[in-house]
Amino acid sequence: MSSSETSPILELREVTTHYGPIQVLKEVNVEIRAGEIVCLLGGNASGKTTTLKTILGYVEPTEGQVLLDGEAINGIATDDRVNKGISMVPENRRLFKRMTVMENLQLGAYLRRDKDEIGQDMERVFDLFPRVKERLSQRAGTLSGGEQQMVAVGRALMARPKVLLMDEPSMGLAPVLVAQNFEIIEQINEQGTAVFVVEQNANMALSIADRGYVLQTGRIVLADTAQGLLNNPQMRQAYLGEI
């Protein structure tokens, strides 16, 4: 892959994160390059969400660095990191339930002033999710789970991020929707956004990813191309549901 020659957009370098005295991440190294889809796999409580929270500055690493475009962003406030081009579809979607779908999308573009381009991005979201366009004035809390997922992705895209983080996008969705969801991720990626997707659904994630990491109790235990991981016997046993 040619992408491995370019320098990473987002990088975690030897990151260790604690919640109080409890260590959750241990010397984690992750790289995401332009144009890539990278997945982070791991079981419950392995530290996947914590990895994303460390990238966004909800928690600060106790050691190591988070780099965006080669520049350390440790210590920078979350909203400023968003301004620098990171956006996320959070675990459980977390829409503003009392606000309309339209308002949720507008809030996604909160930091932007380029009105015309915001309008274009809005159209792009509607192209990806025609359903969303029909629901613009509905309160987000009254949407179905699948629709909420669409709005959550749309809201994150409205920030026009360089890197899109996704925390278990397939959680709680029916199998048909999961497949659709991954197709959408591919489309978003083809339109030029690097994607870092956290998943427990390893098969699905690896089917669209370029590379993947496996996290086990806070440590990266495997890092390889998606194909490499799919063929890895250790991996097949532990995460791909084969004996």
């Binding site: 968003v82 977390r94 507008q106």
Partner: peptide, 24 residues
């Protein structure tokens, strides 16, 4: 207004308001 929406966003979910780039 934009600021008004930010206020409602902060009222509903501070963490996610930050994720929108809002200075809480």
């Amino acid at each position: 207004t934009r600021t008004g929406k930010a206020m409602r966003a902060v009222a509903e979910d501070q963490e996610i308001a930050r994720l929108m780039g809002i200075n809480v």
